[in-house]
Computed example of a mutant assay.
Amino acid sequence: MSEYTIVIVRTIFAFFFILLLARLLGSKQIAQLTFFDYITGISIGNMAAALAIDVNMQPMDAIIGLLLFSLLTTLVVFGALKSLKFRKLVEGRPTILIRNGNVLEKNLFKEKITFDDLMQGLREKSVFKLADVEMATLETSGVITVMKKAEYNPLTPKDIGMPVEAEHTPSLIIVDGILLDKRLNYLGYSKEWLLGEVLKQGAKNFKNVFLAQIDSKGNVYVDLYNEEEKVTQVKQKPLLSAQLRKMQADLEGFAIQTNDQNAKQMYYNQSIELQDLINKINPYLKE
């Protein structure tokens, strides 16, 4: 086997081996150990690189080193989870940079943070005035967290006793031109209703839609493949056809939901009559 072939094989092996180790290590359940992670990543990366291209190195030596380094990393993380003292030793403690609106210059010097660094951290939290800050803390992950003074916090509905409607997570209902029927049915909306909403936003049909998302209030966001082809003026005939089909589907849904036999029969009868009307006028609504 040639030297180039050996390097290629070992590189592929090193890549997937380091990927396996990353999966085994998993996500940490504690605050990010930034510097420790940085050093560990560099060390494991160097070992993997040596395994890939150093033809004079025995593969087993590199594998043992990678496994041992990964094991030690896992032990450090586990120890930080189990012991408060060990966690403080490994990751340190948060440092208060601003307290009661006053900048603590000694702590800035201790953490080697310049005034510009502090202001940048505040701006990242949408704070531009020092006078607005009650407390700012440098976390062990290197992120500056900010607590504004009470008078500068945004007003929430809870502050004024305003009731708000609970919301669920928005759901994608069209992905890459494909309608997710099961998800749409689970949310309680009909295909005809969604088609009407899509037509309102300039699409000709579902296949024109790259992504569509619906929120808990029934608002639909539509992103088309080509925005330049968006219909600027919604054609009323196809929209009317979609609305009629939605009404017909709603009547059938009402019939299924009710336990009153008279109401159930009435909904079914109305649904049949509306379907007959749709069949009659549908040829005139096509464009």
Score class of each variant (00 low, 15 high):
89 L>I: 13
89 L>V: 12
160 I>R: 06
243 Q>M: 12
186 Y>C: 10
203 A>C: 00
203 A>S: 07
86 F>V: 11
238 P>S: 10
218 G>L: 10
191 K>R: 14
149 K>E: 07
201 Q>S: 04
117 D>A: 03
271 S>R: 03
7 V>Q: 04
14 A>T: 05
94 P>R: 03
134 E>T: 02
205 N>H: 09
83 S>D: 06
287 E>F: 14
197 E>T: 04
44 I>E: 01
152 Y>N: 12
20 L>S: 15
118 L>G: 00
178 I>P: 00
104 L>T: 01
263 A>D: 15
157 P>T: 07
186 Y>N: 13
185 N>G: 13
139 E>N: 08
131 A>C: 06
120 Q>F: 11
198 V>G: 00
100 N>G: 11
96 I>C: 05
108 L>G: 08
193 W>R: 00
58 Q>Y: 09
77 V>K: 04
66 L>Q: 02
90 V>W: 02
83 S>Q: 05
234 V>Q: 07
99 R>I: 03
252 E>F: 09
234 V>D: 04
245 R>F: 04
7 V>C: 03
103 V>L: 08
221 Y>C: 08
59 P>D: 09
146 V>H: 01
196 G>R: 01
267 Y>C: 02
81 L>G: 14
37 D>E: 13
157 P>M: 04
124 E>D: 14
36 F>T: 09
21 L>W: 07
67 L>P: 01
258 T>K: 04
